[in-house]
Design a protein around this nucleic acid. Structure first.
Lengths: 200, 200
DNA sequence: TCATTTAAGATACTAAAAGTTTCTTATTCA
DNA sequence: TGAATAAGAAACTTTTAGTATCTTAAATGA
């Protein structure tokens, strides 16, 4: 057996990696210091000396990953599109990519302290809710068409679901969504979108 | 001391209440049977006899609340608006209300196995991200204005943040967001909204 | 109303996991 | 090469989850 002993940055890197693996597999609820020490092939005191709580370690581990894989901020992209649509696509695609190493691990790991089957249970509930919400929008659009406010045709499902997704997101992250903001979304986003898709 | 002993429905109601309180305060990670028994002024065996896991109890407790406070489905509302905007407002306001007793407790509690200060830490990160994203959209809009694709003016912040919020939501709930869907959001929602707000 | 059944609750116990202390020894650096 | 620093092993304490047993209150029904 090679008598080697890691320390400093190399040791911390191993601890962060182990932490992220446990987070991915078991979520925040399953993240304990003994498990981390075990998985990183080190000992408990090493972990206890450095961090105060599993949550603090989780934050550190994820920030470490972001630092390593820094894929750039959305406002530092070189924009090369020739149209508004192309520029928006560039920004949002970059955002999606960086989110996948950020939110997915970061918020995803932290917020979703769920395992596989638990996640599946939640998925079903969301799917049921979506069907109901699409229905609701269909009725609203039908009424608008009947009174000749909108032309014929149908909206894409994700356009129908957009306001519900948006409101749910704000509830998730505990951000207030005021009546004024709701009115703005309706007036500034939904109405233009509906009229664009369902012109006379 | 009154020698009274609850059972059946009354007992379960107290257990559900205790469960929801713990969920709200400590999240799913903090939900344990002994804590519930203690808080509901009953004993551990009562809980262990009825449920297999804290997660199962959490689901039951939240479904119980939904059953009690059933505020109706969004597609069963009596629509009375005289315009598309009014109908949309009715649907989305009702959604917001019912979400507050559904998602907020339901998905919110389950997905966010976080306590108060942990939630606050996440809040700060989101706020930082938002500033960056608003910046990115400002640059995109500026370029479009420079090439005379859009007129003068500014978009409301929540309109700028909308696509980012939407993408984050989908990552949260682990729903794929395909390139085609992204393109549809840009073409069918964002472009009409931007043109509407920033007309020549 | 009283005997019988059912289920709640108290208590003590077991098991497992978290967290701590102490000491040894490998690594680093002057 | 020797002193300082930090890693790792191991034994220990504390806490908490989970279980088993028994007593007794509440419901049921002849």
């Amino acid at each position: 057996m090679t008598q080697t002993r890691r320390r400093g940055a190399a040791l911390e890197a191993a601890i962060y990696l182990a932490t992220r693996e446990i987070l991915a597999e078991e979520g925040l609820a399953g993240l304990t210091f003994p498990k981390v020490a075990d998985r990183a092939n080190t000992s408990k005191p090493v972990i206890y000396r450095r961090w105060d709580s599993p949550f603090a370690l989780a934050i550190a581990a994820l920030q470490d990953k972001i630092k390593r894989e820094n894929s750039g901020r959305t406002d530092e992209i070189k924009l090369t599109g020739r149209t508004l649509a192309e520029d928006l696509t560039q920004v949002l695609k970059r955002f999606t990519v960086s989110m996948k190493t950020f939110d997915e691990s970061y918020l995803g790991s932290l917020m979703g302290g769920l395992n596989k089957e638990q996640g599946a249970a939640i998925q079903r509930m969301i799917a049921e809710g979506n069907a109901i919400d699409i229905n609701a929008i269909d009725r609203v659009v039908k009424r608008a068409q009947d009174r000749d406010e909108l032309g014929a045709g149908t909206l894409p499902d994700q356009v129908k679901l957009l306001p519900f997704d948006l409101l749910r997101y704000h509830l998730f992250v505990n951000q207030e969504f005021s009546d004024a903001e709701l009115a703005s979304v309706i007036d500034d986003v939904l109405l233009p979108a509906y009229h664009h898709a369902l012109e006379h």
